[in-house]
């Protein structure tokens, strides 16, 4: 699956990577994320993690990241 949006750091606990989509939706990213892309529009390729949970709890699905590119 491919997801597009703005990469941001959610300030909960030690922080979590979030993709803010243009429709207002949020995707929680699981995996290594290049920090220099924070605030950039990016395209994320990854796999939705069904039934998982995390500490960020911002809502929206969680996605295991396989690649991130600046859009």
């Amino acid at each position: 699956m491919t997801y597009r949006g703005t990469l941001s750091r959610a300030d909960f606990g030690p922080g979590a990577w979030i993709l803010e989509q243009s429709d207002g939706g949020k995707v929680q990213l699981v995996g290594d994320v290049p920090t220099h892309l924070e605030g950039c529009r990016v395209t994320v390729t990854g796999q939705a993690l069904e039934g998982g949970m995390g500490f960020a709890m911002v809502g929206g699905e969680m996605v295991q990241v396989s690649a991130i590119q600046k859009a």
Binding site: G13, P14, A16, Q28, V30, G31, L49, G51, G52, M53, G54, F55, A56, M62, Q64
Partner: peptide, 10 residues
């Protein structure tokens, strides 16, 4: 139960 990325499966 949560990985270093803060994720855990059900």
């Amino acid at each position: 139960v949560l990985s270093k990325y803060g994720f855990g499966s059900s």
